[in-house]
Simulated scan of single mutants.
Amino acid sequence: MTTALQPPLPSHPVLRLRLAAHSGMPRPIDGAWWPRSYDLLTELPKLLAGLPRKWGHITSVTVNGATWSEVPGRMLVSNQPVQLHRSLATSAAHTIVLLAPGRGRWDLLVVPPDTTAEEAEPLMEAAAADHV
């Protein structure tokens, strides 16, 4: 009898992020992020670490203040300061805005953490699709 070894579980859960292909044309949404919780202090460093290097250093992040738990004025991410802003606009309830000076602005759809995989997958796919 042989025993199949299970691969070890990753020490860090895989970042659930889908980004649209860069086309040079402005887009209303640049992709989707599916965090595991509404704890911004835990989730944001993981998101920023998983972004493409060409986006540069994100210095400012705006989230919906009614959606996320605690949102301090700023935090250190990889020893770099990041300004955090709260928006109460209902039009941006499920988005996060990332700014990198001299590089650009990216708006990501935030899929609620309690969304099932069956519900999240089409949302993430649509946010990253070319026809958005």
Rank of each mutant, 00 (worst) to 15 (best):
P101W: 01
P8H: 08
G24A: 13
L40S: 09
M25A: 15
R27I: 10
I96C: 01
H12Q: 14
Q6W: 03
T42Y: 07
K46H: 14
D30Y: 00
V63T: 05
V132E: 04
I29T: 15
T62C: 13
P52E: 09
A32R: 00
P26E: 07
G102C: 09
H22S: 13
I58W: 02
T2K: 05
L44R: 07
Y38G: 05
A93G: 02
P52F: 12
L88M: 11
W34K: 00
P101M: 07
P112T: 09
S91E: 13
A92Y: 05
W33K: 08
L123P: 01
L48F: 08
V61Y: 02
A66W: 04
V132W: 04
G104Y: 05
P10G: 13
M75D: 03
M25V: 14
L40V: 10
H131R: 11
V132Q: 04
A66R: 14
S78F: 01
A128V: 05
L51G: 05
L19N: 06
P10N: 12
S11L: 12
A20S: 14
D114R: 14
V63D: 01
A120Y: 03
L108M: 08
L40Q: 10
S23H: 06
L51F: 10
L15A: 15
T90N: 12
T3C: 02
